[in-house]
Nucleic acid binder design. Structure first.
Lengths: 262, 262
DNA sequence: GAGTGGTCTAGACCACTGT
DNA sequence: CAGTGGTCTAGACCACTCC
């Protein structure tokens, strides 16, 4: 007495798990499944929808439904922060070879495309709370994308918040045509006397908004990883806070924690 | 010429974002929406499904559709590792004293273990690779749940893998009736001469399997955070590896990275 | 044009929640 | 019991892909 669409989903799921349907294979057409199971078009589609939200299949309009290939993941580590900090003080030429995103992906600078836009803002209640500053504090907000040139979709959507007053000593930092910041964010912060002491990263998972799904080219049912990165300076104040939206199906985050020895 | 269900979804989404429909509010019945928009039952349901997968509404059979309340999140930090390590060597009485104090600082460890089951296993290719050991190495696998006393659904599903040979010097570790391990995992590892030096945590997001959705009481569209925690001893070998499945809608992970000072 | 999945209808009936 | 959402049908037509 189980629901029809569940029985059909179960049967197809078993076929996939057993390997009778391998990754990349096309499933039988909906019309054929409809006939085989003696159920209507709508019921078949409901069954396929179950498998789709489980991430097992992918539907392509006009072509068919396919068993999903596991996506190759881009790994982002927290060791990159020390690496970036070290890099901020080495020479310009050595530095120009690579950037932080390359550290994670192993790609060279030519493969990566950045697009940045700056805008002035003021701290909303939520941002103010997260940064430990008064509401309405003038901010510089940088919005950018990192993208691997061979792929259509960005690796991540980033919004970065900086307190304007703390960085305006260096006019380059307010000019979006200077992006990516020569020498990287860390080097530029150094020019205005800011040294980062610790970084907190708050990770959550949630469904994408319609806009995010569009921009990151996320298949239905995929979620995003949201990473709120807060950088504290040596006085314990927030120097920068950024929100990073990462596609859940092709990102993995690696955090290493070193412990004191006994 | 937009699709009808998208227009309807857009309109309802706008109402929610504008606050005309507040969290907890019931949406108009499907039959009423059907009449209002002049569309069939199925089309209305398609529109509501869009909002559901965006996490904006929650449907309850027989009661109605409701604007979702943001869930209160359980925070898990990586500072807990140092704290746990420190705790492993202090006396039993001191341990119970500090429990409450640390709880206030956000390092919650008063989750209670219920239902632990042990089984003997051998390292699969995937596990062997992750632990850096030969395939087929005898393992002790502990499967357990942590939950807060007040809540129904577990906070996480955990499978922990230990190399049998390294821990069998202490028979208590092989006995599932001794769970939770007196003094905690760290203290018990200490009894067999293992000191943990560093921990790697690999975080990914994915849709839940049907079983996980059931056990964690996840609404449709919610994803899980998968955390693979690998503990390395002072020789650089893997002492323990565990997979933790966390509900994406009520978990946040906080990682702090301390940097070397200039 | 043939074959695929996507949207939609009008209506039936089932299953769950409340009173 | 009335009111809600959940399953299902039979059929129409649309939109996309590939040959």
């Amino acid at each position: 007495m189980a629901k029809a669409y569940e029985r059909i989903a179960d049967e197809l799921r078993d076929s996939i798990r057993a390997g009778q349907l391998a990754p990349g294979d096309r499933l039988p057409a909906e019309s054929e499944l409809s006939e085989r199971f003696g159920r209507s078009h709508v019921t078949i589609r409901e069954a396929l929808r179950v498998l789709q939200t489980e991430g097992l299949i992918e539907k392509q309009h006009g072509r068919g439904s396919f068993v999903r290939q596991p996506r190759t993941k881009v790994r982002r580590t927290n060791e990159r922060h020390q690496w970036e900090k070290d890099r901020a003080r080495i020479s310009e030429e050595q530095r120009s070879e690579t950037g932080a995103a390359e550290h994670d992906t192993g790609l060279t600078v030519n493969d990566l495309v950045f697009r940045a836009s700056y805008r002035d803002g003021a701290a909303s209640p939520e941002i103010a709370k997260a940064m430990g500053i008064p509401e309405g504090t003038p901010l510089l907000e940088r919005v950018y994308r990192t993208r691997y040139s061979a792929e259509r979709a960005p690796l991540g959507l980033i919004t970065s918040h900086l307190v304007r007053e703390r960085i305006e000593a260096n006019p380059d930092l307010l000019d979006e045509t200077k992006e990516p910041w020569p020498g990287g964010t860390w080097n530029q912060l150094l020019t205005v006397g800011i040294e980062i002491d610790r970084i907190e990263e708050l990770v959550t998972a949630r469904p994408p908004t319609a806009e995010e799904a569009e921009e990151l080219d996320l298949p239905p049912g995929t979620s995003v990883l949201q990473l709120r990165k807060t950088s504290y300076d040596t006085e314990g104040n927030v120097a920068e806070m950024s929100d990073v939206i990462l596609p859940g199906d092709r990102t993995e985050l690696l955090f290493t924690t070193h412990l004191e020895r006994w």
